[in-house]
Structure formats: structure tokens, C-alpha cells
Amino acid sequence: MNIQFNKRDPIYLQVVQYFKQEMAIAHLKPGQEIPSRRDLANQLKINPNTAQKAYKEMENSGLIYTEGNLPSRITEDNHVLKNIRKELIDEATDHFIAAIKPIHVPLDELVDLVTEKYTQASKDKEDLHD
């Protein structure tokens, strides 16, 4: 687990965001046990209170669940997991659009460009894995 924190966003939200990403790509699988708040704090080098707050936030929004005194687990609720994926995609797309819009690129050109670059990036990644 490794996060490059930025210093202006709340750290607990950055932790939540990180968990969402890991869940969206199934690095964290439904029902998987997650580290205790102390272990998380130690792994991420953050304050245990911040780890606590991140878990509380995730618990409230249904990303994780805790049964009794057992360790917390990633949710098995498909609906939530789908939502996370959608939310992340929406967020990233919104960012992209917000950045590209002031340049007035025609949509056709943009789609072509995205297709080309995205294919290339995926290929590079595969090459890297080989």
C-alpha cells in the first residue's frame, strides 16, 4: 500500500479515494479483510486518528462493514461496488472535460485522440508487464 499524499486535501479523504480505486480495479476484493486502523496508520505513515476517520467515513458510506469485534471487510454489496466504479469514472471524465473544454476541440477529433492515446497507453502497459 502506497499513497502519495497531497498536502491540501484532507488525508482521510485521500485514503478513502485510494480504497475506492483499489476496489474499482478489484485489488481489494469483496469480503476481503482490511488492515486494522493501527496497521493502516503504520503502513501509510499517517496518524491513527486519521485512519480511524477514514474507516468511519467508509463505514458510513457502506464501502466497508464490521461485524462485532471482527476485522472490517470490504463490502460485498454489488450495488455499492458498481457505484464506486461509476463514481470514479464520472469524476475522472468530469476532470478531463473541465480541462479540455476551454481549448474548444471538436468532439470527433477529441474522441479519435482519446482512442489513439488510450490504446497506446494500454499497449505500453502490457509491454511493460512483458
Partner: peptide, 29 residues
């Protein structure tokens, strides 16, 4: 710094002085 995020510090009250924040920015309440 890794001691600060461990059980060795947990639940205690820590008061620390510094004039250079970058090492511990993530740690402070």
C-alpha cells in the same frame, strides 16, 4: 516518524515542537 504511527504512540498525548513541518505534516492532529 514511523514510531509516531505505531502502537508506541497510540492513545498517548504527544506535544512536539518543530520549526520544520514537512516530515510530520501527515501525522499531526
Amino acid at each position: 516518524t514511523s514510531v509516531f504511527t505505531s502502537h508506541l504512540i497510540e492513545d498517548r498525548g504527544v506535544l512536539i515542537t518543530t520549526h520544520e513541518i514537512s516530515d510530520i505534516e501527515h501525522l499531526i492532529d
